[in-house]
Amino acid sequence: MNNLGLNTARAMNWQCFLETRGYNPGTRDGQLGPDSWKAAQKALNAWGWNAGTVDGVVGTNTIEALQRFLNHWGWNAGTVDGIAGTQTKNAFWNFNATC
């Protein structure tokens, strides 16, 4: 499980966001495991952010895609460097305030 700094409620919002856009994260339980990240990778790839292989692993490509996504929508994840640092985690936290 890798919630990238999200608590259970905010992780559930991320799962809700993915699900409402047609990507199945598995059980909406606030635990971002492989099913949730596979759904995120599929979504990020479909939207053109290039998360790479859909394997459910939160690696450099997935983080870079998430950073590009968050930056594009004005959430300021910082430099696209594939590192889930404080700025990226804060942007992800803020993005997931609601579903």
Rank of each mutant, 00 (worst) to 15 (best):
G74Q: 06
N61L: 15
A84H: 02
Q67E: 13
E64N: 15
L18K: 01
T98S: 08
T8M: 13
D29F: 04
M1I: 10
C99D: 08
Y23N: 05
A91H: 02
A40C: 15
T27E: 13
G22N: 14
F17H: 13
D55C: 06
N76M: 07
L32K: 05
G74M: 04
T20Q: 15
Q31R: 15
R10S: 01
H72V: 07
A97Y: 09
G22E: 11
G22D: 09
A39H: 05
Y23V: 04
L32T: 03
G30R: 12
L44H: 02
L6W: 00
N96V: 00
F95Q: 06
N24L: 10
G59A: 07
C16S: 11
A46K: 15
W93Y: 09
G22H: 05
D29N: 13
W75A: 07
W14A: 04
Q87N: 07
L4A: 01
V54A: 02
F95N: 03
T88K: 07
N45H: 11
R21M: 04
R68E: 10
T98M: 11
P25M: 11
G48F: 10
N13P: 07
L66S: 08
A84I: 11
N13F: 00
M1W: 12
D29W: 10
P34G: 14
N7R: 01
V80F: 04
N94H: 10
N50M: 10
A77M: 13
N7P: 10
E19H: 13
A43K: 02
G56A: 12
A40M: 10
G52E: 01
K38V: 04
F69Y: 15
T79W: 03
D55T: 03
A65C: 07
G48L: 14
F92I: 06
G56V: 04
W47R: 14
W14M: 09
K42M: 14
G59M: 06
T60I: 10
A11N: 09
W47T: 10
D81R: 00
H72Y: 04
D29H: 13
N90F: 10
S36E: 09
G26H: 11
N76K: 12
A11Y: 05
K89P: 01
G74T: 08
G78V: 06
M12L: 02
N13Y: 00
V58K: 05
D29T: 12
R10A: 00
T88D: 15
T98V: 08
W93E: 07
A46W: 09
M1E: 14
G78Q: 00
R10K: 13
F17R: 04
N45I: 12
N7H: 11
W75G: 00
N94G: 02
I83D: 03
G5M: 04
Q41V: 05
Q41S: 11
E19D: 14
A65Q: 12
N2H: 02
A51V: 04
